[in-house]
Amino acid sequence: MLDYKLLEALAAVIQQQSFERAADVLCLTQSAVSQRIRLLEERLGQPVLVRSTPIRPTELGQKLFHHVQQVQVLEQSLSTDIRPTTDSYTRLRLAVNADSLAIWLMPVFADLFHEHKVLMELMVEDQDCTLARLKSGEVIGCVSAQDTLVPGCNRLHLGVMDYIWVCTPAFAQRFFSSGVNADSLRQAPAVAFDRDDQLHVRFVRQHFNLTAGDIDFHMIPTVEGFIDAIRYGMAYGFVPRSQIRQELASGKLINPTPELKMPVPLYWHHWRLQTPMLARLGSLLEKAARQHLQ
């Protein structure tokens, strides 16, 4: 049988990326947390953590972490059934993309908080990378552009986020006065959210036969800063149409090639394990997606 005090220590170390912070969360000494991890490894006969910087779980450690997260969700659901008026909160770990978080996810999380007393712990990644967090067991669900079905999980197609590439008229005059082509795109800087943001790379590869090495780009990892870089004429970039409707209508931003589309499908992936709270989250996501996605 597994000792859940030992598993709780393992989960805390993985989540906090530190024995010291894990000890604070568990109200234990750092030595006590280390002893619990060593005892767990002795009982299992193999390591559960790689003592690197940052600390990371072994393959077995990751499986145990996934398991203890599932147990915590079930315990929280059972506690709510037993004591429906309890003041305790449920913590929910999800991976989401920054644009969805900025545009349409927060009202969903607000409803979930008020109805089920859920505290959100969000990992914000590019929509092409969030699924890896679910596969590794770090999160219970994710919003992803990938449709790959993960074993032990369900998938729901939410809709399509309509991305368009835009820049200021002055930027277009400076870099695209002779047209949008491979040569002009080699000179025009783009803006990316981070190094995992590949929309601009896919665009120039698909339509202009260019590679990532052909493009210069700013890297600005906030939604506001990303759009401001475009507004201030520093770059062109790919933005959900719903975020810049006013700028498009006023002509402050333009799409130099409106015939070239970059639709991004989005999916909700989640553990097959279901509780009333998770079922409610799924229905809220589906309802919000119908309003904001195509």
Rank of each mutant, 00 (worst) to 15 (best):
A229T: 06
F226K: 07
E224L: 14
V264L: 15
L210Y: 05
P151N: 04
D87M: 12
S177A: 14
C142I: 03
S184P: 06
A212H: 05
S18G: 05
A22D: 05
R195Q: 12
I37D: 00
A102K: 13
Q46H: 08
T148W: 01
D197L: 11
A170M: 09
L44Q: 07
D214N: 10
R43V: 05
H66R: 15
K5F: 11
R195Y: 10
I14Y: 08
Q15M: 08
R83G: 00
L119P: 00
L253S: 10
L122A: 08
A11E: 03
K117N: 13
T275A: 15
M219E: 09
Y236D: 00
Q246A: 14
I14E: 03
D128M: 10
C153R: 03
A95Y: 04
A188T: 03
H66G: 03
K261C: 04
L105V: 01
P84R: 14
L112F: 08
L112K: 07
E259R: 13
P84G: 11
P263A: 11
M1H: 03
A23R: 05
L273A: 07
I227P: 00
D162E: 09
E121Y: 06
G213A: 13
E41K: 12
N209F: 12
F217W: 08
I164W: 00
L260H: 09
T211N: 14
T130L: 14
R205M: 11
R133C: 09
P151E: 07
G233L: 10
V264F: 06
L119M: 05
I14R: 11
E121Q: 13
D24H: 07
K261R: 14
S178K: 12
A182Y: 06
H269F: 03
G225T: 00
E224R: 13
R83P: 00
Q198M: 12
P276S: 11
F238E: 02
E115A: 15
R83A: 09
G137P: 02
H270I: 02
R91C: 04
D162L: 05
H67G: 01
G179C: 10
D126Q: 14
L285E: 02
I55E: 01
D197F: 14
G213P: 09
L74K: 14
E41V: 05
H200K: 11
D147K: 14
I82M: 15
L7M: 07
G251F: 10
F176S: 09
L293Y: 05
R195G: 04
M123I: 09
G61L: 01
F65V: 00
Q30G: 15
H218F: 15
P57Y: 07
I215L: 15
F217R: 13
V68T: 05
P256L: 14
Q246K: 13
